[in-house]
Simulated assay, not measured.
Amino acid sequence: MSFAAILSASRAPADSSGGLRACLHFAGQTLVEYQARQAVRAGADRIFVMVSVITPALSQAVDRLSADGIAVALVRDMVSMVRDAPRDADVLLIADGAIVSQAHVDHLGSAMGDTLLVADDSRASAPLERIDAGQRWAGLARISPALLFGTLDMIGDWDLALTLVRSAVQKGARRITVPEADLLEGRAAMVESQQQADLVAQAITSAGADRAYDRGGLEHYVLAPLARSIGGALMRLQVPAFQVRIGAMALAAIALVPIELSWVLPGFCLMLVAILLCDSADRLDELALRPPPRGWTAFVAPALTLIGIALAGESAVAFDLAMLVMLLTLAVRWRRLGGAMPWMVFTPATLLVLLIIGGALGFMQEAYRLGMLAAIASAGALILRRPA
């Protein structure tokens, strides 16, 4: 069942850097954007952000979320919340500055009724809000409509999130305890400064670093592990994924120059680096919980690479091979693999390595013919393994 999510963006950061804690930089975006994407990934269909003042950074964050198809609204008073909040579905409540791993968000997203994510009282949980003598609130809760609107009826000058949590405690809400290891390793934290946000982002994203890429061929087995390392480093440097993707396009275009000058192998090596940059940009999008691009921006670098391969081959076989591999690239990006295993998919990077090896050994034309056979076999695997 779908649900809504209520976030908060009203507190200032502890480092006196100005602005809002919710607008601290986190995993390539603002912290409140990351919270919203976590909620959407867990199943939320609407996002409400409680704000005290609407800042330019907050408005830009809302625009970026809306551009990705996420329904988000800024709420400045309780009257608006009473009017807009869903009356037939639970809400996922996320505290101002709270970051927990996606597994905990998914768990509460699938829970039913009033549920609190809590941590046992200890030195590691000291920054969290105390709810009784033995436990503290870890910044995440699922609230039923009855509890939400029963609390909203008490309109006054108070903190909505903390009041809802205290009401849930009084009504005996179910509790899910966060392991202390998650607190110590930063997978559940209350972010209060930019320095702390950077540390928590590194812990949160490294926890999901072993997630499988939806790739095939050399991209899956070789480039994906490299992209994970490069993506993590670029995220810590706050480099946007779009800039990395533009760099990949530019490098693939530059690689056409040495190919036109008959320096084929250096051109192929540059194109291989361009594909690695594309995968690194995809990794940055994954770390930021953004959906991978499926439009033209995702295909410019591979298309330029295949154009270079066709130009270097100077034959009908090379042109046909480039066209066939481009179709396979579309199938991979649009997830139409028909159940084929990664090693069955013939990708641009796989073709480049084959041609580089063939060119270095003096068998370039034979490498093109072998690539054509491999591409035909890969297309056959995708077709024949597709469910009836």
Rank of each mutant, 00 (worst) to 15 (best):
S122D: 06
S80Y: 10
D320S: 13
V273P: 01
E219C: 03
I254V: 15
V79N: 15
L20Y: 04
R87E: 07
A224W: 09
A189K: 02
G69I: 10
A27I: 04
A367C: 10
R46A: 09
E286F: 14
R335L: 09
L108F: 00
A250W: 11
R369Y: 13
P225K: 06
G150F: 05
D157A: 13
A367I: 03
M112C: 11
G217W: 00
W137Y: 06
H25T: 14
A331D: 12
G232E: 10
H220G: 08
F346L: 07
E260W: 15
G267S: 08
L330C: 10
V105R: 00
L162C: 12
D88F: 00
A318R: 02
I259S: 06
R123E: 15
S17H: 04
L311T: 12
A126S: 15
S280L: 07
T347D: 07
P13F: 01
A322W: 01
V32N: 04
L226S: 10
A126Y: 13
L128T: 05
W296Y: 12
I307H: 03
V264T: 14
M323R: 10
A227I: 07
L218S: 06
P291K: 10
P291F: 08
L234F: 11
A274I: 04
V72Q: 07
T297H: 14
Q243I: 12
G267W: 02
D90C: 02
L352A: 00
G338Q: 04
V82A: 14
